[in-house]
Every structure is written in C-alpha cells, then in structure tokens.
Simulated assay, not measured.
Amino acid sequence: MRLFMDARYTRTDFHDGISRYGSSLIAAVAQLSPAVEVTMVISNEAQLNLLPAGLPWVKVTDPTSPAEPFIARQLNPHRPDVVFSPMQTMGSAGRDYGLLLTLHDLIYYQHRTPPRDLPAPVRLLWRAFHLAFWPQRMVLDRADAVATVSETTRTLMRRHRLTSREIRIVSNAPQPVAEPREPELPPERSLVYMGSFMDYKNVETLIRAMAHLPGYRLHLLSRITADRESQLAAVGRAAGVPEDAVIFHHGTTDEDYEALLRTATALVTLSRAEGYGLPLAEAMAHGTPVVVADLEIFREIGGPDGGAARYVPLGPEPEDGGREVPEADGSPAALAARVLELEAPGAFAEASRRAVARAAVFSWHDSARALVDLARGVAERRSRAR
C-alpha cells in the first residue's frame, strides 16, 4: 500500500501540537511494516529538519494556498493508494486515491477566535466556518474515513452528527522515554505550561495562581507575541505576582522542554477545551504529575483524581467573551492548593510513579497500527469498487 502522509503542518523551528502529531505518526507508521510505503507530502523543504530522515517525499503547495481545493492535481500523478492528513481541510476535488481526514477537537465552535498566526483571509473564513456544524459535515464527508485523537472528541462528533463516515481513534501519544525521572528525588518548586496563549487556554489564571505559591516559578514555554506577553505580564502585576515568578521562554527545544519537565513539581494547564492534551501525556511519561482543569478530556488522559493527575474546577467564563478578570474566576487559589498537595510526604513520589504507568496507556505504535488498519480498509474498499 502506498500511503502518502500530509506533513505540510510540520513547523520549521519547534514542534507545536499538530506538527508533533503528524511527524510522530509518520515515524511510527514507517517503522510498522515494510508492506506500507510511506511518502511524506511537504510544502517547504525546511520541514524535513523536524521529520523522520530517509523517507521519500514530494513537495506541493502550502495548505493555505488558493490551490488547496485542487491539491489532488499535484498528488494524483504520484499514484498514492491512500492519503492521510492530520487536519480536515485538505482539498479533495478530482482525487484518484482514498482520503483520510482528521478532526482533533470541536474547540472553535465554542471559542471562535482563530489562531493569530493565520493570514487574515483564512482567519475570516475560519470564524465563518465555525458558526454552524453543516460546513464541517460537508468537509468531513468528502473523505473515505475520518480519524480523531480521543474518545471524548469522537463522542462529540457523533453527538453533533459531524460525519456519516467511519470515525477511528488515532490517538496522540507521548514520545518514548528511556528512563523516567527518579520519583524519590524532591522536585524543584517550578511549574511548566506548554501550549498556546489563546484566550480559551486560560493562562491568566495560571499566572494569578502564582500569588498563592510563594517560592514557585511558572515556566511558559511556547512562542508568544510581544503584545500578548505584555498583557499577561500586566495580569501578574495586578495580582501581586513577583516578576521573577513567571518566565516566558518564547519557544523551547525538545531537550530544554524535557529538562524542565524532569525537575518540575507539575505540568499545569487550566484550558477550557482540548481535543487531547498532549503535554499531559508527555509530562506523565517522564514521571511528572499534572495539575489540570477538570475537563472530560483531561480525565480521559490523566486518569483518576489524586493519581497521576489532580483536577481543578474552573471558574465561570467571562460573560462578554473577553479575557477573565480576577473577580470572575475562583480557580487560582484552587490550582495552588492542588499543587501544594504534592509537597505532602510521599505525595510527589507516588504521583510520579502513577504518572509513568498512566502514560504507558498511549503509544505511537498503537496509533500507527490504527491508522494503517484504517487506510488498508479504505484501499480495499476502493479496489473492490473499481
């Protein structure tokens, strides 16, 4: 089977969530079976720096190009059996191959502000697209089958009848860890946040919580615009958070990320919506507990409360749809209290061991098998229909 895997969402500097998902799946599928011929689809040769070495690739236009609806014109000559995209927006007009699309979450139906790094016309279309469910149905039903990353998202997709196609879970997973951290070694008084700074991520509350955690430092690892950093710094000042308690890293390497995870007390996030929550799995794989918002998806990933994960009830959302203000949010102190639980004798060591065990539930090998099984089924159905 000739399986083409869309790698055009791979970054050229540091992985973000979708970049790591696609790259990790490509590597795992390529190692799975010699009967599967994997070809990467890129739009920028610099993407090869963060993709598995030694695999064949073809270069086509960027996924935000006006040519995207007709991307099949560029792929058909290469005669793929099936093309897998880690997003749902890949063009399909005139295709001669099976198509697998991925929907990670339904976040933007509730939080419609699009990612800030998209071009203005794409941002406008993005917002319009999420005003109703029927455009998503049209997009997903163009595929032969659909993948998603969690049971939580699959349940939501079925509830809203987003596709008539088969939905298969091709889960996210942490990177393999050769040796987790030593659970008996006391952690540093530091917290790690890995994620974007979009409003629904609720980073303001993380920062306000530092006023209740004297001696702790919060590491914000992702890239951030100067304006957004200024806004968040102002939140900290207003809450009385010491300036050196919040550290902006402006992006980080995998090596530095792992080093911070392996010394921190916990990874933290109070996001109001997620499709999976990859940083949770990554932290747990290293033996780092997580303190996170009490969301269904986080319970799916983190397991029971008080084990690898500790859950924090969220305060109410702002009525005007804007960023939260201290009076409207009761969770900073609750987050701090759950972090401080890990200071109890034996608490961190026990949570660390349980974190490693919980992370082992997810693996790229299992995800690759699920994807290949789905692709083979699509290829066989198309072959019989000819």
Score class of each variant (00 low, 15 high):
Ile107Tyr: 04
Gln175Glu: 15
Arg272Ser: 04
His130Glu: 05
Ala27Pro: 05
Glu327Phe: 05
Tyr257Trp: 10
Leu75Asp: 06
Leu106Val: 11
Pro242Cys: 13
Ala379Ile: 03
Gln136Gly: 10
Ala336Leu: 07
Ala238Thr: 14
Leu295Asn: 08
Val235Phe: 11
Asp13Glu: 12
Gly91Ile: 13
Asn76Leu: 08
Trp364Gln: 09
Asp81His: 13
Glu182Asp: 15
Asp199Ala: 14
Gly236Trp: 01
Val372Leu: 10
Leu185Thr: 15
Thr265Ser: 14
Lys201Pro: 13
Pro86Ser: 11
Val170Ala: 02
Ala211Asp: 01
Leu260Val: 11
Ser383Thr: 15
Thr152Asp: 13
Pro119Trp: 09
Leu267Ile: 07
Tyr200Arg: 15
Glu229Asp: 05
Leu295Ile: 12
His249Ala: 09
Phe14Glu: 08
Glu37Leu: 05
Leu100Gln: 07
Arg376Pro: 00
Arg217Glu: 12
Ala211Val: 04
Leu25Asn: 09
Thr205Leu: 08
Glu188Asn: 03
Met284Phe: 08
Leu55Arg: 05
Phe248Trp: 13
Glu296Leu: 14
Met210His: 02
Thr102Val: 01
Glu255Val: 14
Phe84Lys: 03
Val356Gly: 01
Pro316Gln: 06
Pro56Ile: 09
Ser92Trp: 14
Arg165Phe: 14
Ser65Gly: 10
Leu99Gly: 04
Pro135Ser: 09
Gln175Asn: 13
Asn44Arg: 15
Gln231Arg: 12
Arg237Lys: 12
